[in-house]
Computed example of a mutant assay.
Amino acid sequence: MPLRYLLKHLVLPPSGLLLLLVFAWWLRRRVPRLAVAGFAIGLGGLWLLSLPVTVEWAARLIEREPALPEAGWADLAQRAEAIVVLGGGREQNDPAWGGDQPSPMALERLRYAARLVRASGLPLLVSGGLHFGRPPSEAALMAEVLERDFGVPVRWREESSRTTWENAAGTAELLQREGIRRIVLVTQAWHMPRARWSFEAVGFEVVAAPAGFLGVPNGRPLGGWLPEAKAAWQSGLLLNEALGELLYPYLYR
């Protein structure tokens, strides 16, 4: 297991807050006031992160790239030379499909990319590496779905990346040697600022095509103030993204 993966999941919620609660329990007799503060922060943090309204407000801070107007899809060929769609994870060993499949989040990206390809006629690259070193790559899974289910051909596969920075670097190796430097980039709206920064840092001109916006009215009862398991998962995604956006300029220059 990569150390980066282990550290991230120990620090970010829910693990970080659960560890704080365990630490507070251990301190309850030694330093009771500090233990009470730890319990309050841990339980309060878990509650806040499980609220749809928290997801909505946090996403609005991160999702700074606007949606690409459908009226302009046909003109993308004048603004870019290729479409790049980033992997969004996988579901393992699904017996209905006889193996791994792209995650629902990845499928959302693929569906959007397929429409952009049909509207613009631009060639398509899929980017995503192996899952802890085990084939098939995310790019291979994505290409199969695009070609078999959406009828969209894939010209390039970037199959070595494990991070957003590696998505960008690997894509640059494939496309820039063919003289391609202007791309349409497809990923989640909350992921787009960090993805755009990475691709621009390796020399691309980027037309952002975000999908899957979370910073929209949540439509839940009581305005989203009731806890939900899905909101807790989405909050974790947003926290991970905020941390990545903060650290990337220092890690990759």
Rank of each mutant, 00 (worst) to 15 (best):
I41Y: 01
E56V: 07
E70T: 08
R64W: 05
V31G: 04
L43S: 05
E65H: 09
R29L: 13
R29I: 14
G89C: 13
G42S: 12
V85N: 01
V36F: 13
V84P: 03
V85Y: 01
G88N: 08
V53F: 04
E65K: 01
A58Y: 07
A67Y: 14
L68Q: 05
W47G: 06
E56R: 07
P32A: 09
E63N: 07
F39A: 10
E70R: 13
E81K: 11
G45A: 12
R60V: 02
L68K: 02
A80N: 05
E65I: 00
A82R: 00
R30N: 05
W73E: 05
G88S: 13
W57D: 11
Q78K: 03
R33A: 10
V55Q: 03
P95T: 09
R64K: 11
W73P: 06
A96Q: 13
G45S: 08
P95C: 12
R60G: 04
E63Q: 08
L34A: 15
A80Y: 02
E63K: 02
L34I: 10
V53N: 06
A59P: 10
P95E: 08
R90Y: 06
I41P: 01
I83L: 11
E65Y: 12
L49G: 01
P32S: 04
L34Q: 11
G87H: 06
A80L: 06
A58K: 02
P52L: 03
Q78C: 10
R60P: 03
P69T: 04
A80P: 04
E81Q: 12
G88A: 14
D94W: 01
P32N: 08
L34S: 12
Q78E: 15
G38V: 04
L68I: 15
R29A: 15
E81I: 12
V31K: 09
V53G: 06
R60D: 08
A35C: 10
A35E: 07
L76G: 04
R64L: 15
I83A: 05
Q92K: 14
L61E: 12
V84N: 00
V31Q: 11
Q78Y: 09
V55A: 06
A37C: 14
D75M: 06
P95N: 05
P32W: 09
A35M: 09
E70V: 15
G38D: 01
A67L: 13
G38T: 02
I83K: 00
L46N: 04
D75H: 03
Q92T: 09
L61I: 10
G44Y: 07
A59M: 09
E63R: 07
R33T: 13
A96C: 05
P52I: 01
G45Y: 04
G42H: 01
V55K: 01
V85A: 02
A82F: 08
L51E: 02
W57R: 14
E70H: 03
P95Q: 11
L61T: 08
G44D: 09
E65N: 08
W97L: 14
